[in-house]
């Protein structure tokens, strides 16, 4: 039986969304596997983390209790030791900034392979992890295997679909207090401040309305917010629009931003660079509104509307 371990990142509300996605995907798609999770938890978060994961369909939940602020050095030490003591076939971490700096240190210490920022995962008939990721700026997808164990990958937040339903299981909860020799530490985290823009719930909302450079100005980009307000959709932006200062990076969609999986994605004035398109691949339907009939996004949409994006937005707003 394949043994999968997910490192779950946590905050005061319990497991973070990106980690829940991996757990949910694994328990629903790899039903013959043993699926375990490990979290490094501060005392005060213990209750929240236990609550958020005790009914997630896991076999074992390991709560590694440690009160230090996030430190790559401490966390990679704790997890490397944990993996050495508890052998697993597959090890997954969400590719948040924290996960992406933690994972290579663990892989390097254990001398194992690591695949970065996957957008799809699978297990083949030989129990090998198939980790698929975009590369060359999103132009090419590569499925990567590893010859070493545990087979190790980081998974892009938003890339795996989260499902609330999962098989019922009695989860064993195991609490541990990993020891750290602080005299050997090379670094010290003096302060740690979470940014509060990190609510990524919008990436899975029913409708996402996104704007790009074709809107022409920051004022016109405001129409995106306006239409969202009227319809209950969530706003998003292309990399161009963010770089031009029309929108915040927290709503950027694409290879360097967020992957989204709405039921409907409407792109206004977005040309559809490959690095944008990889971020919307999981949308059920895509409507593109662009004056350029030959823009790449038109070819990659379900419905292509050749029209002025700003005028279309204005009409939709006045009709809503």
């Amino acid at each position: 039986m394949t043994k999968i371990l997910v490192f779950v990142q946590t905050d005061e509300n319990g497991a973070i969304k990106a980690s829940e996605e991996i757990v949910s995907y694994c328990v629903n798609n790899f039903q013959s596997a043993e699926i375990n999770a490990a979290a490094i938890v501060q005392h005060e978060q213990l209750e929240a983390v236990r609550n958020s994961l005790s009914n997630a369909g896991l076999n074992n939940l390991y709560l590694l209790i440690n009160d230090s602020l996030f430190s790559t050095e401490i966390y990679s030490g704790i997890l490397s030791e944990f993996l050495q003591e508890n052998g697993h076939d597959v090890f997954l971490i969400s590719a948040t900034p924290l996960g992406r700096e933690l994972a290579p240190r663990i892989a390097s210490r254990l001398d194992i392979g690591l695949t970065a920022d996957c957008t799809e995962i699978g297990i083949d008939e030989n129990n090998m992890l198939l980790a698929t990721r975009p590369t060359y700026g999103g132009k090419l997808m590569a499925t990567i295997l590893s010859k070493t164990f545990p087979q190790f990958a980081t998974v892009r937040p938003g890339a795996l679909k989260y499902t609330k339903c999962h098989p019922e299981k009695n989860t064993n909860i195991i609490e541990k207090y990993p020891e750290i020799d602080s005299s050997k530490l090379l670094s010290e985290v003096i302060s740690f401040q979470k940014k509060n823009v990190q609510n990524t719930d919008w990436t899975t909302s029913d409708i996402i309305i996104a704007g790009g450079r074709g809107l022409g100005s920051k004022e016109n980009f405001e129409l995106i917010y306006k239409l969202c307000e009227l319809t209950g959709a969530k706003p998003a932006a292309s990399r161009c629009a963010v770089e031009l200062g029309w929108a915040e990076p927290s709503i950027q969609v694409g290879q360097t931003g967020f992957s989204v999986s709405p039921k409907l994605y409407i792109a206004f004035g977005i040309s559809g660079a490959m690095q944008h398109l990889v971020g919307i691949e999981n949308a059920d339907r895509i409507i593109a509104v662009n004056t350029d009939k030959n823009a790449p996004i038109m070819q990659s949409s379900d419905i292509a509307v050749t029209a002025d994006a700003v005028e279309t937005l204005k009409t939709l707003i006045s009709d809503s």
Binding site: R285, A307, L316
Partner: peptide, 30 residues
């Protein structure tokens, strides 16, 4: 330890229909 088993061009095919004159109505319906 890692190797590429398969590499392929990104993006799945979508139906891709072109909206006609009544595109406002179509967007609202969607």
């Amino acid at each position: 330890p890692t190797y590429v088993k398969r590499a392929y061009r990104a993006m799945k095919e979508r139906k891709h229909t072109e909206a006609g004159e009544n595109y406002i109505q179509l967007i609202k319906e969607e």
